[in-house]
Computed example of a mutant assay.
Amino acid sequence: MKKKNIAHSLIAAAVLFLAGTGLRAEAAPAKLNKGDTVVGYYTNWSSDKGYNPADIPAGKLTHLNYAFAKIDPAANTIAVANPEKDLKNFEQLRNMKKKYPGLKTLISVGGWDYSTYFSVVAATEESRNQFAAGCVDFILTHGFDGVDLDWEYPVSGGPAGNINSPEDKRNFTLLLSAIRNQLNAQTQRDGKKYYLTIAGAANSNYLNKIEAQQVVGLVDHIFVMAYDMHGSWDTYSDFGAPLYNPQERSPQYKNSVHDGVQAYLNAGVPADKLVLGMPFYGYIYEGVGAAQEGRYSTFSSARSISYNSIKGTYLNNPAFSSFYHEGAAVPYLYGNGIFISYENSRSIGTKAAFARNLGLAGVGIWELSHDSAGELLESARVGLIGA
């Protein structure tokens, strides 16, 4: 406990120093080195909100994941989810890469809505090879540098209707192996490096459903979804992505970013294969009590809310008071019977410094349109690379 507190203090001090440098969001990006991976997810529904591929701060990313493609179970392959929208976006991404040739773009497959048939395509050698071949064809056709699998989730979990099987644990490894083999074969043909990544939940329950040590040898990195620690599905209001568990008593389970990352390290996953995923959104709980500024209260309704919306509606609203929980290292708002758990520049910078301190591969963002001005992204970069 003492060592963790010391490290926590050092991280916080470093971030406070960096925050005082006065760097602005439009500052030129520093050169990224090993351990400075910055992954941003761009969703195909972002353009519905007016956030287009041209708005992506590509110069401040190393990898851009386009979410999501879906699975065609009839052909055992991947397919665009919204052809009219996606194909236009793909063209813009190809043009973006002409300006930023160092940026790696990956097509993300699955996610919460499109993971239904992963178990099907992973089930046999034939279907795995078909899917792997489809991945290679897709990235070559549309100009991507690799594929990112967001299977939510192997063995069990995910939305109603997901197909799951106890065999998913082994078959996930075999599916990744088939994709890796075909990506390597394509590298032999054209001399280009192709990337394979996955996104995984930040808890030991998820890690018990995959063969972590075998998986990590097949992928370039694992994007740890270190958010949704609490949310609208709970009984009580709570922090969405606390870096550490608050020491105060709460009436429900505790989970933290630190615990999620530690679960991967305990499972034998090397730190430099982990990308710390961070949320550019929060949760708003309505109908909470006034005790503890709305923390750990029952609520009448709750939903996710983007940083853009929090900043535009609540941060400068005199009816709301701003707080920062030192133990959890996250901010929150309270007013009018409403509790809002979210991230700001300080907490994002602290999380990024935490990733740097542990020697992780870098940080990642879900998702870019939630912070259209790019201030949280800049704080992540500052915390990660110190410049």
Rank of each mutant, 00 (worst) to 15 (best):
T298W: 00
R295K: 15
R381V: 13
N316H: 13
N129W: 05
T37S: 09
Y42Q: 08
I338C: 04
S156W: 13
L174N: 11
G110L: 02
F280P: 04
T298D: 06
P242V: 03
E211Q: 14
D168C: 05
L384W: 03
N162R: 10
S115H: 05
S372D: 12
V80Q: 09
Y342R: 00
L64R: 08
N5Q: 14
V80K: 13
A69G: 15
Y314D: 01
V39P: 05
N95G: 04
P242Y: 05
Y307E: 04
Y206L: 08
M225L: 01
S301K: 15
R180M: 08
G260F: 01
T350L: 12
P251F: 10
I340T: 04
D228Y: 12
R94T: 10
V155G: 05
G282N: 09
Y332M: 05
A302E: 01
I6T: 15
E211C: 11
S322E: 06
R189M: 07
Q92K: 15
D137P: 10
A75S: 13
R170I: 09
G289N: 09
E152F: 07
T77P: 11
D72T: 09
D148R: 04
A271G: 10
V330I: 08
Y324T: 08
A319T: 09
L16C: 12
I365N: 05
K169Y: 02
L140Q: 15
H142N: 15
I310S: 03
N162Y: 04
N162P: 07
N44V: 00
A79H: 11
K60F: 02
L18M: 14
A30P: 15
V109M: 04
Q130N: 14
M96N: 07
K2N: 15
A271S: 13
K351N: 11
G40P: 11
Y66I: 06
T141S: 13
S204M: 06
K98W: 00
D272K: 12
P154F: 02
A201R: 05
G110S: 11
D72L: 04
S369Y: 07
P279V: 03
T77Q: 10
Q130M: 12
I338H: 03
